[in-house]
Nucleic acid binder design. Structure first.
Length: 308
DNA sequence: AACCAGGACACAA
DNA sequence: TTGTGTCATGGT
């Protein structure tokens, strides 16, 4: 244990961009402090700090048998080679630029329920607002987890069973708005076993997608987010407004507007065996480096004015 | 102060 | 199939 009541470990990681990965729209509970990125993985408080070629990992309790570290390693996507993944990207200008701009960005492997619930809350919300919602849900309905001495409290993301016992009004009070009945319905389906999140790990991606899409509030995009960010399905390719604009502008510049379905098909055949990774690189690239004006001015998806 | 946000859904044509 | 209005809330 160090001087601040936490147990310190390390994970070999190569260069790892914690901000891009933990604060880039995959997960919503990580906060940066002076000592590093703090969050909860499962029922464990964790603080991460990026060093030269490894990650410093601080835990609230000793990890005698290495189980905690193994879980965190998996969560961070360290059990696969980033270098090998990037080599499978097609050699085109947009992806080269995205790779250059996103060094050290990785895909996480989150817990399915937390990921699913978070993205049900995500529709038509900015990332900062999703973070607020997810934090409110955790504060009010999550179980407390152990934290280092002198550290403020922390809670796990609430279980499906706990959220299923909430009323729609209680969820609306967490700023969910029209998404409240969606989350309630999904929590109920998962709790009763109408949908088993465990069995989605086996079977084809399409089968898992169909199963997820039976849940209220879960369409193609949110299903693909869960498949990619929780189940590691690289053939999932979530197309949100940003990715849609990125694909249209970078791959069909000045051409007629491609429908969502067309972009979906293009992505499947163009980006190869790690399409999901490419998607996250494009998403992060256009958001972080091209920014908001780009989305306004060149948006081919922008709704045309009424009365015209 | 408008505009838009890691959409889904019911409904129209 | 493809296109629209609606839903709730607040950041920029």
């Amino acid at each position: 244990m160090n001087g601040h009541g936490a147990w310190e470990y390390r994970l070999e990681s190569g260069h790892y961009d914690l901000k891009a990965t933990l604060d880039g729209g995959q997960a919503f509970r990580w906060r940066e402090s002076a000592a590093g990125w703090e969050g909860v993985v499962g029922t464990r408080w964790v603080r991460l700090r990026s060093e030269e070629a490894h990650l410093g990992v601080a835990l609230a309790t000793a990890d005698a048998n290495g189980i905690a570290l193994a879980q965190i390693q998996r969560y961070l996507g360290l059990d696969h080679s980033l270098e090998a993944v990037l080599k499978t990207f097609p050699d085109d200008a947009p992806l080269r630029a995205a790779q250059e701009a996103c060094r050290g960005l990785r895909l996480l492997r989150q817990e399915p329920w937390e990921c699913l619930a978070s993205f049900i809350c995500s529709s038509t919300k900015q990332i900062v607002q999703i973070q607020q919602i997810v934090e409110l849900l955790s504060e009010r309905y999550g179980e407390p987890v152990e934290v280092p001495a002198g550290h403020g409290g922390a809670r796990a993301f609430p279980s499906a069973a706990r959220l299923a016992r909430c009323t729609e009004q209680e969820l609306r009070a967490c700023k969910l708005g029209f998404r409240a009945p969606y989350l309630l319905g999904a929590a109920t389906a998962v709790t009763t076993g109408a949908l088993s999140l465990e069995t989605l790990a086996s079977g084809s991606t399409q089968q898992a997608r169909d199963a997820l899409m039976t849940l209220p509030g879960v369409g193609r995009k949110i299903a693909d987010c869960v498949l990619l960010f929780a189940y590691g399905r690289q053939d999932a390719f979530p197309v949100d407004v940003w990715v849609q604009k990125a694909l249209q502008t970078l791959y069909f510049p000045g051409k007629r507007r491609r429908s969502l379905e067309e972009l979906q098909r293009f992505s499947q055949r163009h980006f190869g065996s790690n399409a999901g990774y490419a998607q996250q690189y494009l998403f992060h690239y256009v958001r972080a480096h091209l920014g908001r004006d780009w989305s306004r001015n060149q948006s081919p998806a922008r709704r045309r004015p009424r009365n015209l």
